[in-house]
Design a protein around this nucleic acid. Sequence first.
RNA 1: GGGCACGUGGCGUAACUUGGAUAGCGCAUCGGCUUGCGGAGCCGAGGGUUGCGGGUUCAAAUCCCGCCGUGCCCGCCA
Length: 625
Amino acid sequence: MSTSNPAKDELVQLVKGGITLAYPDVVLEDSDLAHSISYSKGTEWDMSSSIALRLAKQAKKEPAEVAENIARHLKTGKLVMGATALNGYINAKLDEKELARTVIGSVVESGERYGASDIGKGRKAFIEYPAVNPNKPWHVGHLRNPLLGDSMARIMALCSYKVERMDYIDDLGLQMAEIFWGSKHLEWHPNGKKYDQFLGERYVEINKHLEEPGVEDEIKGVLKIMEDSEKRDSEESRSVRSIAESCVRAQYQTSFDYGIYHDGMVWESDILHEKLLGNALTLLMDKGIAKSVESGKYKGCLVVSKGAPENGDEDSKVLVRSNGAATYLAKDLAFHLWKLGIMRAAFKFSKFIEQPDSTYVFSTGSKGEPTDFGSADVAVNIIGSAQKAQQAILKSVLSAISGKSSVLHHLAYGEVGLAEGSFSGRKGTWLGDSRNYTADDLLREVKAKALEIIRNSEKADKGIDQNEVSGKVAIAAIKFDFLRVDPVRKLVFDWDRALDFNANSGPYCMYMYARASRILEKGNADPKKLLPSGYTHMGRGHDLELVKLISQCQEMIEKACSEYKPNVIADYVMELSLAFGKFYQSTDVLKSGEAMPLRLAMVWAARQTIYNMLYLLGIETSERM
RNA sequence: GGGCACGUGGCGUAACUUGGAUAGCGCAUCGGCUUGCGGAGCCGAGGGUUGCGGGUUCAAAUCCCGCCGUGCCCGCCA
């Protein structure tokens, strides 16, 4: 895999050449070599390889001797001026002028596509998020999901995947039957409230009535009708679908406020009604993967084996219960068979809602046209790590039927909680005292704080649209806060941290972008004209650190993509912004005389790279703030 | 009981997959910088036995084994 960090690529080749001359018998992969190389922090040299330390073991020689031997045979290149050995490391000195010319030239040429990769070329990724139940508003506990999904979609698209951003609406569960009961027995008027908020509050109220006599039986009866594939037109099914659609429309307003868009959505009830479920079960039985159980604990059920061959009941998962109703797993399995093109489905898609970018989200339903959604090469499921075991079962069954092992990737993320505990829709934990923990309230609070800062700051630009900028700052703060951490970690939501716009935050990166923009504006910069002459003025301190960082862009994107970790990008853009901050405060760009064209080009390249990385996190920039 | 994660200065985290030079960054604390290319900033200081104990190795935050702590999962729920 090419890293497309020009300095690293060159050093790989040079060290490889040196090894061939010094130790002709040694065989090494380029990737091993690349992995041994990193930029150094020291001022004496710029880049180092630890490969001699590994070879020494293999050759049973002293590391220092091996390193010196390789260094002695190392040729110079366009960027690498020379190398010396020290303590078993091979240390290379770079020509900072050539490096700047190469890296900045590359940014100017590629623009918004700087950092793009082709590792996903020819492959289609079906990314599913956030699949929030349609009976409440998105709250802070949900938010990590769509933020991760949206960012992964952006990252994978830049890595040349054909990306489908999809949602799954679970409108068949018990909670929807309960909602239907509520709509019949409780006061049922939104009274001007946002519909998802209204529904969420009612749901908490409904839960207080579940213990009353007869309620449970009535709800069970509703559920039975909803789950009957022949009763799509029943009052129950139509009413539930209608309530769920209203809720999803309201939830999507929140999504749009956060700049999170989708291409399509699949409803669980349509998996049932369009016969995908029935056909999937038939296929699983035909292939011998699903079996009817005649006796024992699961008598009368259709089950699938969890992984390892028959271990009896212990290793079985139920697909169809003895009462004939399919489990969630069965529907999920059917959905995935379609997602991955293992089975076709008669889904009809139609426009569900228009998004602020003028595109539509297409939804399954009883009317519409077929589309080419699905049949993906990889399904990326953004789902909490609590569901690891279930996802593993899904994956193992899919592997068994497709013969491929890596068709499903579960992007498991740690739960988002509050210091005082976890969120519960049933108990209504998301309903706070003075402010709710909904995604809407969070955005409102953070935006108010941003507005306050802008109004109180003497340095803030007077010519800006304060409303627009504070909105962007709020988005930046929230998204960065959620995305900066490795997904596997738990996240404890904290108002203080969400409202901190200092370094290590989205607003800080935005600020550096705005600063860069103003310098370019005042310098009347045109990157195309900046190039030819000025590289002789390239320095080695903050100048070089900045260029080195910019050169690592594509490596970072590929890492974030292949490891499914947007925090790699957050980390990188933070480093980049910090490096730019040091750079612009250590040199007066607009008063740097003959070096000015070069300095402006560096500002331009840094700004473009920051822009590209913030885009991958779903953060919009502003020229002034 | 079985399984899966996680444990890094006061707090939040990076590096762990593929072992490599002084464990990187931010917050907080303390000291300095502003008549400007806008301070949501910059410079500097203090603060670490990487949960504990073994092992492998020239070299361990990283790999292996055993503990301890925290969370999650093990349903004919979704």
